[in-house]
């Protein structure tokens, strides 16, 4: 299998370049070319994942898997919201995640026994935390678009000018649903992770590992977000800013080594 990260990373980057060009010259051919490159990237990305089976417990694995889910999200939005600047927001995040996964490519652990029957709960933990990451990333994208759209309306700019985006209400709903879905998954995923900590005898697998603390911090931020929305009825703009902070924390957490993976490596 000759597909490397560079193959799909460059495809996504080209699709992003074409989307940028479409902002200055909105012709159909540029849109189609962008979609072709985006689709080619996604196909290459999918084949890469099937053959490489990266370990989601590693920084590389979690980033490359998250990038794949977002690439699907990008294509869905690019097809359904063709007049909106959807790709301009999603593709940079996809490219960023692919770029980060390239940097953290060193560890080449495959899924191996992480997804075996023996490690069923470990797999569930991984899938839930990854799904929560997808939710937080979608919330981040919706928040980013919300802030741009809100700024445009605050400045009373032309609805035609700049980037064309979904309505504030729609973006706010997208953010709300993403966080509402991410929180329970993060909670259960985190609980499963905690339950596994005492079962390992390795001293490096502790409660104070950066990944554990980061994920715990992310859970607290998600909880605060829910409280501010439903308990304190904080305006959506502030919630959007906090969601962006949550995404930043999530990225930091994703790139730190997983304690179980570390333990696995030292054995």
């Amino acid at each position: 299998m000759g597909i490397t990260i560079a193959c799909f990373g460059l495809s996504y980057l080209t699709a992003l370049g074409l989307e940028l060009a479409r902002q200055t010259r909105p012709v159909r051919s540029l849109r189609i070319a962008g979609l072709v490159f985006g689709t080619a990237g996604l196909i290459a990305h999918t084949i890469f994942l099937i053959y490489q089976q990266p370990n989601p417990a590693t920084a590389f694995g979690s980033l490359v898997l998250l990038a794949w889910v977002l690439a699907v999200f990008y294509l869905y939005g690019a097809v359904h919201h063709r007049t909106q600047a959807w790709a301009l927001f999603v593709l940079p995040v996809v490219v960023l995640l692919v770029g980060l996964s390239f940097i953290f490519q060193g560890g080449s652990e495959t899924i191996g026994d992480w997804f075996s029957a023996d490690n069923f709960w470990g797999s569930v933990h991984g899938i839930l935390v990854l799904a929560a990451s997808v939710g937080i990333t979608v919330g981040f994208l919706a928040s980013l678009m919300y802030l741009v759209q809100a700024r445009r309306l605050r400045m009373k700019r032309s609805p035609l000018g700049g980037l064309r985006l979904l309505s504030l209400e729609r973006l706010e709903t997208m953010n709300r649903r993403a966080i509402n879905l991410a929180f329970p998954m993060l909670t259960v995923g985190l609980l499963l992770g905690f339950m596994r900590v005492p079962s390992t005898s390795d001293p490096s697998v502790g409660w104070t590992a950066a990944k554990v603390l980061g994920t715990l911090g992310l859970w607290v931020v998600a909880l605060v977000l829910l409280y501010l929305r439903y308990g304190a009825q904080v305006p959506p703009r502030r919630l959007a800013l906090l969601t962006i902070a949550a995404f930043g924390l999530m990225l930091v957490t994703l790139v730190t080594a997983h304690p179980f993976a570390m333990a696995e490596g030292t054995r």
């Binding site: 309306l153 609805p159 979904l166 309505s167 504030l168 209400e169």
Partner: peptide
């Protein structure tokens, strides 16, 4: 029409 455009930028349904 511009007024309605503005409203559509804020609300979805």
């Amino acid at each position: 029409s511009v007024a309605v455009d503005y409203v559509r930028q804020v609300f979805d349904h």
